[in-house]
């Protein structure tokens, strides 16, 4: 049950996409997302799709993995499509029954929305699959470092994110264990009544909170023992250096971005 969630799961590999500087990857992903949502027509959308598929092929990550991540979002996708079809009433009418009108524009918008959301997910998944959480937060810290001038605690923010990501799998394993232990004492998790379901959560959530606080305290002590003082005088073991590959990739992304923008404006 809990094993199937893949938030920020890193899929180790050694290829162009994996090796790219994470800072560049984040910027490229942002450009890509804007690219997806820029134009209203299929022409501009196709740039994003081509870009994403190219990156997907280069990353050598099995497509099956993405399918698994999209599956839980299917209800949202279907809902979006249904709403689009019901509320967009312009264009050629295919079919009409009372209030309900199936129009060309409605179908078209629904398809575009689904494609967009799917590619949005694939694109952001690609970032987390090819970049380890540590690299990611490190890159975010670097990218946000100009905000330090405004006294924004960039380092603490990045550290908090790193720790949160680090503890997701730990807490999931813990939850599984607690559920098993309470089941052994006859806790019912299979009742279909909402009231019973909510009641069954208490024996799981309380131990989970207690253990999360315990871990937080232990971690804080451990960090203090190692003289952690935030980013004062802290150096990085792995410094990030942009190479020729990074610059070329970013340039290509920018060219695609402006091409998509031009097409979006022109058509």
């Amino acid at each position: 049950m809990l094993k199937d969630i893949t938030i920020g799961q890193y899929f180790p590999g050694d290829n162009l996409i994996h090796r790219l500087d994470p800072r560049f990857k984040i910027v490229m992903t942002l450009l890509y997302i804007i690219m997806l949502f820029m134009g209203d027509e299929l022409y501009s959308l196709s740039f994003g799709i081509v870009y994403c598929i190219a990156a997907l092929v280069l990353s050598k990550i099995p497509v099956k993995l993405f399918g698994k991540s999209i599956k839980p979002l299917l209800p949202i996708l279907i809902m979006t499509a249904i709403l689009d079809i019901i509320f967009i009433r312009e264009g050629t009418v295919y079919f009409q029954a009372g209030f309900f009108k199936l129009t060309e524009d409605g179908v078209f918008t629904a398809v575009k929305m689904i494609v967009r959301i799917i590619f949005l997910i694939i694109g952001s998944m690609l970032l987390t699959y090819t970049t380890s959480p540590i690299q990611l937060t490190d890159a975010i810290e670097r990218l946000l470092s100009p905000l330090k001038r405004l006294h924004f605690p960039v380092h603490s923010f990045a550290m908090m994110m790193t720790i949160a990501l680090r503890f997701i799998p730990t807490l999931m394993i813990e939850t599984d264990k607690i559920i098993a232990a309470q089941k052994a004492r006859g806790a019912g998790f299979d009742s279909s009544k909402l009231r019973d379901k909510a009641k069954a959560l208490v024996p799981v959530l309380i131990p989970l909170f207690v253990s999360a606080f315990r871990r937080a305290e232990e971690l804080a002590t451990a960090m203090e023992c190692r003289c952690y003082r935030g980013d004062i005088g802290r150096t990085k073991m792995k410094s990030m250096n942009a190479g020729i590959c990074d610059i070329v990739s970013l340039t290509i992304t920018f060219i695609m971005f402006f091409a998509a923008a031009t097409v979006a404006v022109l058509f």
């Binding site: 813990e174 264990k177 607690i178 098993a180 232990a181 024996p203 309380i206 131990p207």
Partner: peptide, 11 residues
């Protein structure tokens, strides 16, 4: 069944 470190399941 009493699990390992069962005290973590007290609630």
């Amino acid at each position: 069944l009493v699990f390992q470190y069962p005290e973590y399941q007290l609630f």
